[in-house]
Design a protein around this nucleic acid. Structure first.
Lengths: 248, 248
DNA sequence: ACAAAAGTGTTACAGATACACCCATGT
DNA sequence: ACATGGGTGTATCTGTAACACTTTTGT
């Protein structure tokens, strides 16, 4: 059984071409089978689908998510959605808001518990995704037509990310395991939508003790090769708890 | 109609006797009428009540809340709960998390969308509450036996408040309209659970431009009377948006 | 040699911390 | 006059902001 009044949606952010991207899908009943493996759950969800023209249209994209099965923990199910959609697990995923306006979905009363996730789409190339072919990255400022209040949810997620990033070092999740300081700086510039001073940024980041010098360098770049860093998971977890002042 | 799988609960924080307090109730079917004015909604909710022994016991207290009526906006309904429980409106109320573990409520699948509110119980004496007699303040470290996962929800709310208070000047909501700097400092000391330096605290607060000197003083105190301040709503709103660094 | 991005240091300023005594009021 | 909490200033330290040139690499 699924809960007809509750859906779980994930706003999956990626960082690509120096832009923030969002992973979206055009949900089709067939795809639901990947999430709702129980036949009855699938049938129930399909029925809801059939009732809602927006969900059957080819024109509209939406957030990746489904109704919540009765027997799944909320947080676990969000992880499952992420896993099926991207093939990835153990990545940053956070519940940030539940949307519950009365008329947000036509003809139905649905609350959506929304999560946002951060992944690096170059590093994680979605090969493992069960629905890779039905899913697409969109730059945050070039979103397609979206169903329901997906757009609002995306921008609330972005706002939450922008706040979060100021006090917690979450931004690292959007980078490959080994990254340059310039990449890191660009990431922060894009998220915060402002220019940062290179020297000051480097000083601040390096003083945090979060970076590990991998002793490797970029190769095949037509300029001085940058050092590659990874970040120290132990110190990251510590700082995450303490609520480091990460304002930049 | 109500949504059988969704409840809305409010963690109502007050500041009294230099302690953080929480407003709780022992829900009884009769009280539900104050919230669920539609007869059918009341009956549905009562039925759920009757099924759950914990809700009928005299021993257990719980968070104030009910199932969500089908025709209410989620946020509006949280406001309504607060209004009925305390008689107050236009006070600080924030959705902070949705709890959705599978077995958090016995025999039923219920997600709880949790909000927390900040009020000053001395100033707002609950006279206007429709259910004042059925409601009681508890000090945060002297909580009674609580139903379901209410305790977890309360402590998650407290954690959220502790984080929030570091970056946004929310603490003001817990004080009377006119307050002394010592009261404000004590409030922060209690919320953050650490001692603060008086001189530095005052300097910091006063530099924020958030305080208005009312030119009044305490009366009938057996020591030098403290100045009373109120706070500047306009600047408050501004700072709230900007995400002021309020670390103390 | 040139283009392109990486990398680096100093000075000035603002905010944070540490710390101890006098002041006003009621009993 | 005394008990109680209110109220204040300064010196030091730490972190932030502003700012321009040299280095490395591939073509």
């Amino acid at each position: 059984m699924i809960l007809k009044n509750v859906s779980v949606d994930c706003v999956i952010f990626g960082f690509q071409n120096d832009k923030i991207n969002v992973l979206l899908w055009q949900a089709q009943p067939g795809l639901l089978k990947k999430f709702l493996t129980n036949t009855q759950e699938y049938e129930e969800s399909k029925e809801i689908f059939d009732k809602n023209p927006a969900l059957k249209s080819d024109q509209f994209w939406g957030l990746i998510g489904t109704h919540l099965p009765t027997d799944d923990d909320l947080d676990d199910y969000a992880k499952k959605i992420l896993k099926v959609a991207t093939g990835l697990k153990d990545i940053f995923l956070k519940q940030f808001q539940t949307f519950g306006s009365k008329d947000r979905v036509p003809h139905m009363r649905v609350l959506t518990v929304a999560y946002y996730a951060l992944i690096n789409p170059e590093y994680h190339n979605l090969e493992l995704s069960s629905i890779a072919k039905s899913v697409k990255w969109f730059e945050i400022d070039k979103l397609p037509e979206l169903i329901f209040d997906s757009k609002e949810i995306i921008f609330r997620a972005l706002k939450t990310l922008r706040e979060e990033v100021q006090y917690h070092p979450v931004g690292f999740h959007l980078l490959p395991e080994k990254f340059t300081l310039t990449q890191l700086q660009t990431l922060y510039e894009v998220i915060l939508d402002k220019q940062l001073d290179t020297r000051n940024f480097r000083k601040k980041i390096q003083n945090m003790g979060l970076l590990i010098d991998t002793n490797e360098k970029q190769t095949n770049v037509a300029h001085r090769a940058a050092k590659l860093y990874s970040f120290d998971v132990k110190i990251y977890n510590q700082l995450k708890e303490e609520g480091l002042n990460f304002r930049i």
